[in-house]
Simulated assay, not measured.
Amino acid sequence: MREKLLPFVIGLLPILMVLGNSMLIPILPDIEEDLHLGSRWSGFILSSFTIPAALVIPFTGILSDRYGRKRLIGISLWIMILGSILCIFNGGLISLFMLGRGLQGVGAAGTMPLAMALIGDLYQGEERSRMLGSLEVFNGIGKVAAPLIGATLAQLVLWDQSFWVFPVISFVILVGLRQTVESTKGFRKLDVKAFSAVFRSKGRLLIPLYVIGGTGLFLLFGILFYLSYHIENTFHIDGFFKGFSFIFPLGAMTICSYWCGKRLKTDEELGWTYLKCGLITMSLPLGLLIFFSSLGSLMFFLTISFGGLGLTLPVINTFITGSVSEQERGMVVSLYGAVRFGGVALGPVAFGVWRQDPAQMYIITFGFTLMNILLFALLSVRRKGEARIEI
């Protein structure tokens, strides 16, 4: 029973992180109206969550190496609960609401990255690859469901009451972890010399993987931001059908992540093959968008491209967690989480500027995918003669 419950409990951690911003997008107008904010505050409402999370994520990894994954996840969830309560009982004060959002971001720092590190500690071989793939599946499910959850709750209750979702999910995770995971031990204190030693020995592998993963999330959230704007203003699609249109590209990413995680197992060479195929599959359709702009073409090419991203993310997760020892895993994985979250935070900002000229935006986007392919080519050359990754 515990073995069946554990994947679900760990999978709720990335969902909790995704809900932190994606759930709010449909209810931002209600928040602005009730708190008497201008539309320019929408970005601050989102960034007040993402910026603290990106800054705190590396420290949660280092502390989890020292004091244990389970303990740090628990502390993070209690901070998330506290921040959510401040958002619920904000009393119409923007300062109290923004403080709550900041605490939510600090709490979110101990979700997805520590979930990856915990899986690396608890599982080996095929099970580790499968579980890391399932994390991206839960992540994708969260991305699809979050806007629908936010829009539905806004119809049923006041917007501030929708923040009860976070304490409820947090309590479920806390109870689930208590039932399924023994208290994880802490390791030696990681000093600066040990930190630099890891990247001297593994940096040629880790840094390109960080950049590829972060760039993938940057493009994902930037394109989703643009798509939300584009299909409403150009094709006049709004409401439920607008939310439904996101299911196709995000669904393709989720399915491909599940398929990749299930098949990857312990075959490192297969992982490199999937990574190559995923990067090419992501790049080519985005290049074709330079020449085709109809709604059908847009949705078709984005669905294929996001499917390619779904192939790459489980491989990167597996390679990063398997490239270092248990004592260093929290730090290394959390740094990757910070890079990913930085991409999530910067994507909408950049595409908000680039969307004024869609043709140029597609060229820039295609350029980022070519950069990832170039990084993969460099990795392929460098990895020859180096030790295998223990996946």
Rank of each mutant, 00 (worst) to 15 (best):
I373R: 02
N233I: 04
S294M: 10
V332E: 04
D160K: 12
I45N: 10
I316L: 10
M23P: 00
Y336T: 03
Y226M: 02
R355I: 11
K193S: 15
M361C: 05
H36Q: 13
F195R: 11
S294E: 14
V344A: 09
H36G: 10
E268P: 06
A252D: 00
S129L: 01
E328C: 00
D191E: 07
E326M: 10
T273A: 12
L309D: 11
K185N: 10
Q104Y: 01
S334G: 06
D160A: 10
F44H: 11
V181H: 09
T303R: 09
R188Q: 15
S48D: 07
A109L: 09
V381C: 08
M17W: 05
G125R: 07
L174Y: 06
L158I: 04
A108Y: 09
F341Q: 14
N372R: 09
E32N: 13
I280F: 12
I57P: 02
G140Q: 09
E32F: 06
L16C: 06
E136M: 14
V9E: 04
S134V: 09
F235M: 03
M112L: 14
V211F: 13
T111V: 04
L370M: 13
Q360N: 12
L19V: 02
G140K: 09
W354N: 10
T321P: 01
N90D: 13
V324C: 08
